[in-house]
Simulated scan of single mutants.
Amino acid sequence: MGCDGGTIPKRHELVKGPKKVEKVDKNAALAARWKYCALSTEKLCRPIVSCDLGRLYNKDAVIEYLLDKSAERPNSEVVSHLRGIKDIKELNLTDNPAWEGEMRNTKGDRYEDMNCAMFICPVVGLEMNGKHRFCYLQTCGCVFSDRALKEVKTEICHKCGDPFRDEDVVVLNGTKEEVEKLREVMEEKRAKAKALKKPKKSKVVETASKPSDSKEYPDPTDTVPAGGNISTQNGGDGSQTVPGPIGSSSSSKVVKPLAASGSKRSIQTMEEKSEIYKSLFTSHSSAKRTKDQTSNWVTHTPYHF
């Protein structure tokens, strides 16, 4: 069948062999990681931020994701570890003076160098194109090549002078093993931050539950440090002054003890009080009137006449 007109088919046209595995261009893979946002897949433009895992994002894309996490995005799993704006750090990058921009070869008559990058290391001068290992500091956000941090060992930033530790160095676009290590470090930091927040909350609850140490009313047995006359009340019937020590100041401190729990004690039942003293109050029998002694007031109106 077929072969009309004297055509002779070849072997690869008749026999189907295994499909060849497509190889990814290394330059294209590096450009996708170092020149494009990991979330929106758009070209990186200032301000550029990075997370604890060392991925590069456009700040606008991350803010849009944090404002609406329910929206469907193609690369949402890349930023699933981001909880808020505090989980990202804005990078302090150094521009490459040899960078002419993306529109330098619009006519197609010039050689386009794929290894030329927008940013470089401010210490060594290496271009941030993916062929060299780059890191950033979580304290200040400055970006350096790994060679610069190894050759010029210091405890302060080469660019801004802020102090940093080895734990603050995060590798940008690292390998799978490096990303796993960074993820473990990130989880440890978050666990420590949670542990520190719990005791703070418990302290606030304890201070709120404890009563105030200051007494609303002082104890009648308390001593007066300045010395003087102390007046005490017995059921509101009067006050008695207790003279202070000789040579003390004339100022007196009034002490009002708390009312005893239960029914109040009547003055008329106090045996230590005299009858003359009890007659000063309306609860005494002499102050009470009978019905005959009480007068019936009648108002006079002119309508009766």
Rank of each mutant, 00 (worst) to 15 (best):
K198P: 00
K198G: 08
P199F: 08
P199H: 06
P199W: 07
K200T: 12
K200E: 15
K201W: 01
V204E: 15
T207A: 13
T207D: 07
T207G: 08
A208H: 02
A208D: 02
A208W: 01
A208L: 07
S209F: 02
S209A: 07
S209G: 02
S209Y: 03
K210H: 04
K210Q: 11
P211M: 08
P211S: 13
P211R: 09
P211E: 10
S212N: 15
D213A: 13
D213Y: 08
S214G: 06
S214L: 13
K215S: 11
K215T: 07
K215W: 11
E216P: 02
Y217I: 03
Y217V: 05
P218H: 03
P218R: 05
P218T: 02
D219F: 02
D219S: 09
T221Y: 09
D222G: 00
T223E: 15
T223L: 14
T223I: 14
V224P: 04
V224Y: 15
V224L: 14
V224W: 13
P225A: 10
A226P: 02
A226D: 06
A226C: 12
A226T: 11
G227T: 00
G228T: 03
G228C: 05
N229E: 00
N229A: 03
I230R: 13
I230H: 02
T232S: 12
T232N: 14
T232M: 15
T232C: 15
T232H: 15
Q233C: 11
Q233N: 13
Q233V: 10
N234H: 09
G235S: 07
G235N: 10
G236I: 06
G236D: 13
D237W: 14
D237C: 15
D237P: 00
S239N: 12
Q240W: 15
Q240C: 14
T241H: 08
T241E: 12
T241C: 11
V242A: 14
V242R: 11
V242T: 14
V242D: 11
P243A: 13
P243Y: 06
P243N: 08
G244K: 09
G244R: 09
I246P: 05
I246V: 07
I246A: 15
I246Y: 05
I246D: 13
G247K: 12
G247Q: 11
G247L: 13
G247T: 13
G247F: 10
S248L: 07
S248W: 07
S249H: 04
S249I: 05
S250Q: 08
S251H: 11
S251D: 14
S252D: 06
S252G: 05
K253Y: 07
K253S: 08
V254T: 11
K256R: 14
K256F: 13
L258I: 07
A259V: 00
A260K: 01
A260G: 02
A260S: 03
A260C: 00
A260P: 00
A260T: 01
G262F: 00
G262C: 00
G262R: 01
S263K: 00
S263W: 02
S263R: 01
K264V: 04
S266A: 04
S266M: 01
I267N: 06
I267L: 11
Q268N: 02
Q268R: 04
T269G: 10
